[in-house]
Structures are given as C-alpha cells and as structure tokens.
Design a protein around this nucleic acid. Sequence first.
DNA 1: TATCGCTGACTTACTAGTTAGTCAATGGAT
DNA 2: ATCCATTGACTAACTAGTAAGTCAGCGATA
Lengths: 207, 207
Amino acid sequence: MEKKLSRAEQKARRPHEILDAAFEEFVEKGYAATRVEDVGARLGVTKGTVYLYFPTKEALFEATIGHVSAPFEDVRASIDALQGSHSDRLRQLLLLGYDKLAGDRKTRELLRLQLAEGSRFPNIIDRHYGEFVAPLLDAVRALIEQGVASGEFHQGAAASMPEVVISSAIHLTIWKLIFADRNPIDEATFIEAHIDLVLNGLLARRR
Amino acid sequence: MEKKLSRAEQKARRPHEILDAAFEEFVEKGYAATRVEDVGARLGVTKGTVYLYFPTKEALFEATIGHVSAPFEDVRASIDALQGSHSDRLRQLLLLGYDKLAGDRKTRELLRLQLAEGSRFPNIIDRHYGEFVAPLLDAVRALIEQGVASGEFHQGAAASMPEVVISSAIHLTIWKLIFADRNPIDEATFIEAHIDLVLNGLLARRR
DNA sequence: TATCGCTGACTTACTAGTTAGTCAATGGAT
DNA sequence: ATCCATTGACTAACTAGTAAGTCAGCGATA
C-alpha cells in the first residue's frame, strides 16, 4: 500500500486520474448526463478539485477524448512492419485491426462517443479522421494496390475501396457496442469468416 | 393552406406530430440535452401540451423510438420476393439493405440513438434486435445456404456468418453518421466494390 | 353556453462554475 | 533532528441558471 505520495507526485498524477475517471463517466452517461461532481467522486475528490485542472466541463470532455486517442501512434509503424505474401500481410492487417478496434474497450467506447457527441464536438471527429482513419485507409489501399500490381489480387472495384475490405471489423465493433453481452457473437469464427470472404468471395471457383 | 382542421382531427394528429418533432430534437441533441419545451416549440405548442399526450420525458423518448422503428415490417416480405440466381438475389438484397439502412436518414439516426442511449434504455435495443436484426440475418443466412446447396457459392467460413456479408452496409451507415458531409464517400462506387468483394473476393482467379 | 385542448406561470430539483477558508506537507532555520 | 512559517491542493458552501413536471384558468369550438 503506497499511500505515501509526495505532493508533487500526487499533483503530477491528478490530471491523468481525472481523465481516466471522466472517460468512465462520459462513456456510462454521455456528455450531458455526466456530473462533474461524479467524476471527482471516483477519485474521492470534490468537484472543486476537477475545476483546478480543467476550466470547464467542455474542456474536460475534449481533453478526455484526446487522452484516450493518444495511444494510436504506433499503429502505422506496425502496419509497415508486416511480412509475407500480400494475402498474409492483409490477414495480419485485419487481425491487427480487430485487436486495436473491436478488441480494445477504450477504442470501442471512443467510437461510441464520437457517434453520440460528435455533432456537438466537431473537432474530435476531425482529429480522429486525420490521425487515425485516413492513415489506416491509406495503408490498406497501398497494400491492396501492391497485391494487384503483383498479380496476387484481381483488379476489381473492391481494390480501389479499402473501406469494404475492413468493414467487418467496424461491424463487429458496433455489434459489441450495441449488444454488449446480450447477443454475443463467436468472434473467432466471425474473423475467420471475414478473412475468408475478403480473399475468396462467395462464388465457387471454376477449375 | 389547410388551416381548417376540426378539433378531433387536430387531436388525432397531435401524437404523431409530437413524435416527429421529438425525433428531430433527440437526434440533434441526444436524450439528456433535449428539452421537452423545444419539442413543443417545433409545433408552435408549449410544454404543457406535450405532457397531455406523454406522461414523462422517458415515455416520450421510448414512444419516439417505437414511432420510427415501425415501418420495418415490410422488409421481410421484400426479401422473400427476390428473383433470379443466388448471386442476383444477394445483389438485390444488398441494394435493398443500402436503401433501407444507409440511405434512409431516419434509420441511420435510429442507429445513432441506439448506440448513444441504448445502455440507459435497454428495451429499445431488445425490440430492435427481435424485430429487425434477427429476421434480416436469418434471411441472409437462408439465401447463402441455398446458394451453397446449389453449388453456386463455395462452402467457406463466410457462408455461416451472414454478418460479414452485409457489414459494409453498416460501415457506410456509420461513416455517414460520423462524417456527415465532411468526408463524403462515392456511394455508388462503394456499393459496387462491396458486391464485387462479396462475390469474387480479392484473390485472382486461376484459369 | 358547455366543453376541452391548450397555456404559461409556478414549484421543485438539480448542476455548472466560484471562492473564501482549511490543513497537511514542505523546507529552511535553529 | 526538531520546530514552525509558508505554501498550495483541496474542500464546502454558495450563486445563478436551467429544466422536468403541475395545474388553475383561458378561449375557441361545437
């Protein structure tokens, strides 16, 4: 039990603690229904303390979104490091996507907050698009174009629209957000089916 | 200008008018931030009038969700009426899905409300699953199974997971909800790419 | 004129944001 | 090592504003 934190240490931790608590509250109640006092209460601290670190509830919300969006910077590097045939790399890319998006509760709930509050906080949408969505789509597009150039992938409409290749990962994320544990899906089977569909399609192969 | 409505006619219309107005307000502001007074104001009527028809704000919200979910009953019939090869019918089914889900603003915004408020109104989720999601998935699954049985579709993991076949429609819907008109997608190309991917996959066909 | 859909002022309850005051940690002096 | 003046993170009680829900009365309709 390390109840012994110096003042400086405690002060340095506060903003992080507050943002973590705020994220949980905003996820659970939404922006409007969240009370700043309840955010503080999660830390055993009063509303006044929260207002020492964040000037308004809006600023707290935007900082909270930035706080959980931060750990995305490594995704781009992971994508460039993939090895193997284009099919292999695409498979790995999709698995990575499931891990970071559908598999990570914080990322999932971030998507919920974007949908729920995005129209009132447009800048969180724009930031997320520039920092996460656009680079990811560019990486998928580049990978598919390489596969087409090498002859491994066929030249079809799907090759120019990377969204349709990754969209099942979005679907699973939304499913988990809406149904939580009420209508669970077998995720391993789902992911396998997705990869099978992306690579092979539905039509029987002629020989 | 038909300002001449009898009292009985006006009274019969009121609940519908209120629900239409409430839907717009809830979509724009979310449940918590919506003011009952503003719902009334859309009709040029005061808060008191709204409370003559709905006992609480919560009841108004649940009735609003039920109001916009209502017109789904015909979807099932449309699916059963499809004609042609299994590929043709699947294509028509997907086009129908885009039309009813991504293409219809009310349905799209209903999805947003489910995501945003579902955790505080669980029954709207359960109703929607039973009345819309489950029947749709069953129809897609049945169609794919018939295609596999006939030899037109190959027997793969995707055949048992109808979600991965329709998920691009969900993706486009989410995209439109989040980015509205800031990052528009060419929808015709998107849908074409989706159908191409579902039928052919990415791998080049051997000859 | 009797009815009744509607009004709008009112009550009640709640919350964002403020600020004067508290007290425990700190660190220099002895 | 001990004392103690100072700091500053935090609190608690406050203001000001807002919104849900109520109801006595109004006035157009039939």
